[in-house]
Design a protein around this nucleic acid. Structure first.
Length: 204
DNA sequence: ATCAAGATTACCT
DNA sequence: GGTAATCTTGATA
């Protein structure tokens, strides 16, 4: 096991800042999911910011509902939603209470528990190169590989089940800033951040 | 009660 | 490149 795992867990303070600040710093951090049976982990390589105060693509744009209520809490909670009849997507809530902001985790590079992720995604632990690249290169894929679902809605990221670990910040010249993917409103906001040339990024 | 849309993915040509 | 699959949610009546 490499020294990624001695990195400290990101604390409340990290998440309670402005959503774009947090989104910019998330690539390079490590997503961890722990259970009594195993540890799954991956380096975040792609994210998108959502801000309900004026961003029409955000789930919080039209106010609080049962589905999005956790996004109106202060930063540091896990927002999981279900979409297209098939996929869960996971987010990190940011900002202060009542802001309605979060960062969607769109892709990670798997580093721990790859065999279990393979079983969750493809029903087998031994993967070829193509399958490995397809493990967690999209928001729905991450949740399937990590076994993230509705049960994890609203988890506190300072707890022990799901959390992020710090790592050195990725330098600006290695972060690509782009328009977000898969939305039909507020499409021009440059709120997607991903690591340059990383093969696990969902799309160029 | 009904309905349309969706922060996607896998599979097709 | 394009599109079917699939069902929860939120909006409207």
């Amino acid at each position: 096991m490499d020294n990624n795992f001695i990195s400290p867990k990101l604390k409340k303070k990290f998440y309670t800042r402005d959503v774009l600040t947090v989104a910019r710093e998330l690539p390079g951090k490590i997503l961890v999911k722990r259970s009594d049976k195993n540890i799954l982990a991956g380096i975040i390589v792609e994210v998108e910011a959502y801000d309900g105060s004026f961003d029409q693509a955000a789930h919080t744009y039209r106010g609080k509902t049962k589905r999005n209520e956790i996004m109106f809490e202060e930063g540091g909670y896990f927002y999981v939603y279900f979409t297209y009849g098939a996929h869960f997507c996971c987010n990190v809530v940011t900002g202060v209470k009542n802001y309605g902001t979060a960062v969607l985790i769109r892709a990670v590079e798997p580093i721990e528990g790859i065999e279990i992720m393979g079983k969750n995604r493809f029903g087998k632990g031994l993967l070829n190169e193509k399958e490995k690249l397809n493990l967690t290169s999209g928001p729905g894929k991450i949740c399937q590989a990590f076994g993230i679902n509705k049960k994890h809605y609203g988890l506190d990221l300072s707890g022990d089940e799901i959390y992020l670990l710090n790592r050195r910040k990725i330098s600006d010249d290695k972060i690509i800033v782009a328009k977000r993917i898969g939305i039909k409103k507020s499409i021009d906001l440059p709120w997607r951040f991903y690591i340059k040339d990383n093969p696990y990024v969902s799309r160029k």
